[in-house]
């Protein structure tokens, strides 16, 4: 991969920092977020690597990853991060960025078929909030 000043300093990373209120450069890549993430089994890229991609300005790779969608905001990463980076907040910001650009991840029919009568309202509402644009 070629590192370019224009990419490293791009507006996208600034936007993610602004949305999340976090400094992605505070991350020193210890991997603790990935180490304790209960959903890492579903992710295509480890959470700390998402941070690394942002540090290097790799917008496309960060946005193409499925990882942010699998974050359940359980905050294990955020409370244990030695640098105080709210990793879950950054995942939320990536999701928000994608949603604002029209990305839709909610498959209503599937939910309806599966668990319509049982799923608590809060599950459905938060599903809409996190996965629907």
């Amino acid at each position: 991969m070629e590192l370019l000043r224009e990419e490293i300093q791009n507006e996208f990373v600034k936007k993610i920092e602004e949305l999340s209120g976090q400094n992605v450069y505070a991350c020193y890549q210890c991997g603790k977020c990935s180490a304790g993430c209960p959903l890492v089994g579903q992710m295509d890229i480890l959470p700390h690597t998402i941070l690394r991609l942002l540090q290097m300005g790799q917008k496309k790779e960060a946005l193409d990853s499925e990882t942010p969608w699998f974050c359940a905001t359980c905050l294990q990463c955020s409370v244990k991060c030695p640098k105080g980076v709210d990793v879950a907040g950054i995942m939320d910001a990536l999701r928000e960025f994608l949603r604002r650009n029209g990305v839709e991840k909610m498959e209503l029919q599937k939910i309806a078929d599966r668990m319509w009568k049982k799923i608590p309202q809060q599950g459905l509402v938060s599903g809409f909030r996190k996965f629907s644009s």
Partner: peptide, 17 residues
């Protein structure tokens, strides 16, 4: 640890894990 939370509308596998 997490139960999978709102991923229930997105990833059955994640919640089951």
């Amino acid at each position: 640890e997490c139960c999978g939370s709102f991923l229930t509308t997105f990833s059955e596998k994640g919640v089951e894990d």
